[in-house]
Design a binder for these strands. Sequence first.
RNA 1: GGGUGCGUCGGAUAGCGGCUAUUCCACCUCUCUGUAAAAGAGGCGCUUUCGGGCUUCGCAGGUUCGAGUCCUGCCGCACCCA
Length: 372
Amino acid sequence: MFKIIKKSKKTNARIGKLKLPHGEIKTPCFLPIATRGAVKNLTPDELKKLGAQIILGNTYHLIQRPGLKIIKKAGGLHNFMSWPGPILTDSGGFQVFSLAKRRKITRNGVKFISEIDGKEIFLTPEKSIGAQIIFGSDIIMVLDECPAWPATHEYAEKSLSLTTDWAKKAKIFYEKKLGSKIKNKIRPLLFGIAQGSIFKDLREKSVKELTKIDFDGYAVGGVSVGEPRKNKKRVLNWMSKLLPEKKPRYVMGYGKPEEIVEAIDLGMDMFDCVIPTREARHGRIYKFKSASKTLASKQNAKFYEILQIEKSEFSKDQKPIDKNCRCYTCRNYSRAYICHLFRTKELLALRLGTIHNLYFYLSLMKKLGNSI
RNA sequence: GGGUGCGUCGGAUAGCGGCUAUUCCACCUCUCUGUAAAAGAGGCGCUUUCGGGCUUCGCAGGUUCGAGUCCUGCCGCACCCA
């Protein structure tokens, strides 16, 4: 399933191949986010051209709309959204964090009050896995509780025991549903999610128990939930030593370009983040500082910059965002034009921004892979 | 020439006797990490030792404890009549 092809001599970085039902992906890789079955502003065709190998959908949002029935009838999420490549789906665990005001955690699952119609949604570890199986996800994530920072040791410990318990239940349910069924085909992978906030003993405990359950891959959850950068780094450092080497390692919801660089050096393989897509819609355009420079000096010095493209300094700037960038946006349009589109709220602004920012992230991944 | 109405921030507005003059747009600054985000926060007269101080509703007077608001004159704009 997961093969490490090459290891860096200088760092813990590695290149891997991961076989999935809808194709093979190369790691390290970045997953553009398609929460509701669409990467905002892009067609699957465009995504593929940008170099996306795998995308991420969200269980909580998709079971609300359009609902399981419709996706099932469409023949799964791939068919429904016309993306033939691999899909990883998040379990809804992140919504435990992001929709904290609208949910209640119980032993058996999470009760949400829908932000759409006020209806109650009860998400259990089993339901989440069941839904993801119906989606036809290539990588299924277990339901976890993602505790916000700051959390007390006491709370984080309690939360972790729940998350671990849910992980066991998820695994049992998954085996029951898919265990014997698929023989010749590659079956969807099931990933566990390590929690434990910023506490070393809890992170250790989390990984120990998850590996006992035995998953196809392991994710680091609960990172970038408000904690200072130092803490994130420390957690990832521990995790890189704790997580099994032979399994894919996925840092959830991560991160800024420099953070991904660091995490790859620590031996992390997969990443997803809303930054490139969301910030694109908000007029923050990422670009490399200089194409000729390698990313070797990346550790401290920022190798990229962000243009706030709506600023008046760009309103007359006829240069492309990045003359060395080969994305559709940079090959065809000037900063002035994109600035104009943003200021006049033309929808094309969002598309062009998204295309460029995703190209930036995905080509960063390529560069980082090549440098291993 | 006569009449009517109107002049409030860069633009558009609210306010029709009572404390710090409303809102929208534009503009400026910032935020965004498993997406309730094409979103959100702050600023937008001058000045400040960040406590505040000063100044403002076309202009000039007046009435009043108190005026963007009422009265008089002027200026400007719009419309109507001649």
